[in-house]
Nucleic acid binder design. Structure first.
Lengths: 194, 194
DNA sequence: TGTGATTTAGATCACACGCTCTAAAACACA
DNA sequence: TGTGTTTTAGAGCGTGTGATCTAAATCACA
């Protein structure tokens, strides 16, 4: 019996993602959001609750997509080392493509949230630990197939890769010189070789 | 002939730093600031211009101190590798000390500023490139004194160290498990060995 | 076709924000 | 001590914010 929604949820949430990604949670005003989403204020509040709930939804959606991408990328390729090479190559491409100089929504959220706001801190920490686990699996496979050094534990190397990835996402938000980005990625992948 | 200021500039700026560090630029309200600084609103605006100018001042002061610390720490010790070990050990200590779970003010500023706000982006990028240069010098010395691998260029390794450092600062803002932090630091320093 | 729930639309609310204003107080110099 | 300048003190300005409200439009079902 209810009147169906007139807007496409996917498109609307994509638009909200774009705004939050570029401006952050606090700086993104509801007016900016409704304009970008092409929805009225009332529709937004009716459909999603409030600004914070919308942000949470956007963040979860983004994180889910990012984790899926990480998992599949780290699983492809002839060897674990090759998968990691591809992974970081894609990351550096994204970092250097002028458009996506916005870093990673999750990282941005984590830094904006800070010590207050335990909710978002938990969300972000959870994503980080999942990615770290994916790295760890990948490194372990590489140590088994001989493509990655066994000089250090898979856990330690996974932590290293996580921090490099996060650092890269930070650098992405400044205007990085391509040489720096390419160099550090080359360095990170080379360092894993046996 | 003018009446001298009644407040201690250093203490007041330290207080402002604490607020901006914990809350970020946008979320730190002028009322929070004046309360923490123990100054009246008029004094704040009279002495520092506006909120943004105060933030800029605080950021520059913080960055200056941080760069000095980096430079001196990376210069001490029997070898370049030992200096880097100390450097990252100090960093992980700071990351794990419950109090300073605020990461790094410069990193926070860089991520909050984003693509808009070219001014702060420039400030942050400049600090990053200076730190990278310090790493580069240190690595070069290590390659000369034999304490650091020559398998990769000093520039590439410096980039790797920068991204690890930034990643660590991001992780600091979530509640990191000590084992993860210690592991990734161990991994980063081990990987530099010849 | 009528009924009722739910969406739209846009004006509008109360509030917190960054910032300024007017006095009064305080000090360096003559 | 008198003068001039700058600080303090805190009330209050206009604006933009997140969120709501009333009414009209819309559609599934009986």
């Amino acid at each position: 019996m209810p009147r169906p929604r007139e807007f496409d949820e996917t498109a609307v949430l994509d638009a909200a993602t774009t705004v939050f990604w570029a401006r952050g949670f606090k700086a993104a005003s509801t007016r900016e959001l409704v304009e970008a989403m092409g929805v009225t204020t009332a529709s937004l509040y009716n459909a999603y609750g409030d600004k914070r709930a919308l942000y949470r939804l956007v963040l979860d959606r983004y994180a889910s997509g990012a984790l899926t991408w990480c998992a599949s990328t780290l699983d492809e390729g002839p060897s674990a080392a090759a998968a990691l090479d591809r992974f970081f190559e894609a990351l550096s491409q994204e970092t250097l493509s002028g458009e996506a100089r916005q870093g990673c929504l999750v990282v941005n959220a984590g830094l904006e949230a800070g010590p207050h706001d335990p909710e978002f801190q938990t969300v972000v920490a959870d994503v980080f630990s999942r990615i770290s686990a994916l790295f760890c699996d990948c490194v372990r496979r590489g140590q088994a197939d001989g493509s990655i050094t066994q000089a250090q534990s898979a856990e330690d190397l996974a932590g290293l890769l996580l921090s490099v990835m996060l650092g890269l996402r930070v650098i992405a938000r400044t205007q990085p010189e391509p040489a720096v980005v390419l160099g550090l990625v080359r360095s990170a992948t080379t360092v894993l070789r046996p």
